[in-house]
Design a binder for these strands. Structure first.
Ligand code: MN
Ligand code: MN
Ligand code: ZN
Ligand code: ZN
Lengths: 138, 138
DNA sequence: AAATTAAACGCAACATAGTTGCGTTTGTTT
DNA sequence: AAACAAACGCAACTATGTTGCGTTTAATTT
């Protein structure tokens, strides 16, 4: 299936115009083999106005097309939402793994299910960020 | 036990000088009932030079006296390390809970133990950030 | 196919976070 | 009391992220 058409649908479904910039940004994010750092987006999309890049990212974040995979001190990482997400709800059941060697961030499904309970608290969301050494860097 | 003396020991143990600024910053962090946001530190420590505040925080972070409890978009939250931590190792087994209503961040021990496994990966650290509504805001 | 309109874009300007260099001050050791 | 390295304050700088506004363009209507 053609990516451009798929992205166009994704955008229109959220009442966002399918502009060339948005399609290009989505293509870059989707073609990256892991979560893409902001610094990489800057490099690959030099012809984007700074503000446009931020506004486009925010539009995609707000509408549940992409999500932040990691917010470390060095960089902010973005990845496509695999499940169906909306403005109201980002339902991700996966964790984010960051390799301390190559700094690659990826969305991974864990083998075991994670259950977290805190007394007297209504839990809405659980973000798990795992760091260590990835397969390639061991 | 006198806090000032305790903090002086904490600092000297890490080869950090026990200066009035460091003692004051530690007192502010320790006396706060939850993880303290950076914005709050700014307010409470207006007489600190901006750079000094950053450098002091970084010194305490590096040496394992305090830790970041949450790095959200709105603010960065700091809390005392309860376990014995060092430059090399922050060993926290607790999770960080952020209330979406009052924006309070706290370090909480979960009732159940959390086990995360990812194939072909050497896990070094697991950071869990839970958000929802706290007891007071329900 | 042309007109319409709200959204998206580019530019300038701004605000805040965080860092670096350097001269001065201060905590700790002798 | 003296010496020294660490800590501090100030100026300057870079990076991140946002806002306002005039112009352009995607989607809709005629
Ligand atoms: Mn993810
Ligand atoms: Mn904590
Ligand atoms: Zn790696
Ligand atoms: Zn609350």
């Amino acid at each position: 299936m053609d990516l451009e058409i798929k992205f166009t649908d994704l955008l229109r479904d959220r009442n966002l115009k399918a502009t060339p910039k948005r399609l290009e940004l989505l293509t870059v994010i989707a073609n990256y083999n892991s979560a893409i750092p902001y610094s990489e987006l800057q490099k690959k999309l030099k012809h984007f106005d700074r503000v446009t890049l931020y506004r486009t990212l925010n539009a995609l974040l707000d509408s549940g097309i992409i999500h932040k995979a990691s917010v470390s001190t060095d960089d902010t990482y973005y990845a496509m939402c695999k499940e169906y997400c909306t403005t109201e709800c980002h339902n991700h059941k996966h964790v984010h793994f960051k390799c301390v060697e190559c700094l690659e961030v990826s969305c991974v499904d864990t083998t075991n299910t994670i259950q977290i309970q805190i007394p007297n608290v209504k839990i809405q969301q659980v973000d798990i960020e795992v760091s260590g050494v990835c397969e390639k860097c061991i």
